[in-house]
């Protein structure tokens, strides 16, 4: 098939950036979307032009590195699919495809389609863990966890941290990401001791990092490649409210001094 591609080109963080149009012939329908971009890049290099920078790594839909806004949809039009797992059989000859980076205040563009998502790592520093030292664990089967709860925690834990939820949200909220982490731990006995301070501090950190607030657009759930449910956002809200009404000491100390 033949394709017309409108791709966002931006030299660096300071550059204004612009769309540039490319034409690509002989696209095979078994190719993945990123393989299609590989082919484009080989042609650009051979012509002496700069290839398009984009992020990718495992190409199996699990590392969360890739992420392009394709025709307005983060990760493209297929439901429950990362960009690397999107295949060209979902497009047809003559299609015009617009490709952009994640666009959100908390994700500055680094180059072309590559963005800086370190804000997600910083959110995790405010309680995205269970404080357990190596070697201090008891026998694994001493902790009984009902299968249903464990399965639900796993549904939340499947988040790959790609940031599509933020990119899709008109408010640029990271609620789905944070709610997945908070819910994963709130559902398990291991997460109980730090449950309250985790909810309060991760929500606070979200505001500090420049993410927006949730107003129930539900775009995040629609684009999430792992189909994380917004029910977890409801769970996060409940966790946050319950924790907020507590007195200072019950909320627990801070994870970071800043």
């Amino acid at each position: 098939m033949k394709l017309k591609l409108n791709i966002w080109r931006q030299k660096n963080r300071e550059d204004r950036g612009e769309f540039v149009t490319y034409h690509l012939d002989d696209v095979n329908s078994h190719m993945s979307f990123l393989e299609m971009l590989d082919v484009l890049n080989q042609q650009l290099i051979e012509k002496g032009e700069q290839p398009v920078a984009f992020e990718h790594d495992c190409r199996e839909g699990i590392c969360g590195a890739c992420g392009l806004v394709i025709n307005g949809y983060p990760h493209g039009p297929e439901e429950g699919t990362t960009t690397c797992q999107l295949h060209m059989r979902h497009f047809k000859d003559g299609d015009e495809i617009t490709i952009e980076p994640w666009r959100s205040k908390a994700f500055p563009v680094v180059k072309d389609l590559v963005v800086d998502r370190s804000s997600l790592d910083r959110l995790m520093q405010h309680g995205g863990f269970v404080s357990i030292r190596t070697g201090s664990a008891e026998d694994a089967n001493n902790t009984l966890i009902p299968k249903e709860k464990s399965d639900l925690a796993m549904d939340a834990a499947e988040c790959i941290g790609c940031g599509a939820c933020v990119a899709s949200c008109p408010n640029g909220a990271a609620m789905l990401f944070v709610s997945a982490k908070v819910s994963h731990f709130a559902l398990l006995p291991q997460g109980q001791p730090e449950r309250k301070r985790r909810a309060i501090q991760m929500v606070q950190a979200m505001q500090d990092e420049g993410f927006g607030a949730c107003t129930n657009y539900r775009e995040c759930e629609a684009v999430c490649p792992k189909r994380i449910s917004i029910n977890f956002i409801g769970m996060l809200n409940r966790e946050f409210i319950k924790a907020s009404v507590l007195s200072g000491a019950e909320k627990g100390g801070k994870y970071r001094s800043k």
Binding site: V130, I132, A137, A140, T143, L144, I145, P146, D151, G191
Partner: peptide
């Protein structure tokens, strides 16, 4: 020890209905 450590971290390993791994 690894399994113990990972469970303590909250890794949601598959479980049986009785709550065991």
């Amino acid at each position: 020890l690894i399994i113990d450590q990972c469970v303590a971290q909250g890794v949601p390993f598959a479980r049986e209905y009785g709550g065991k791994l």
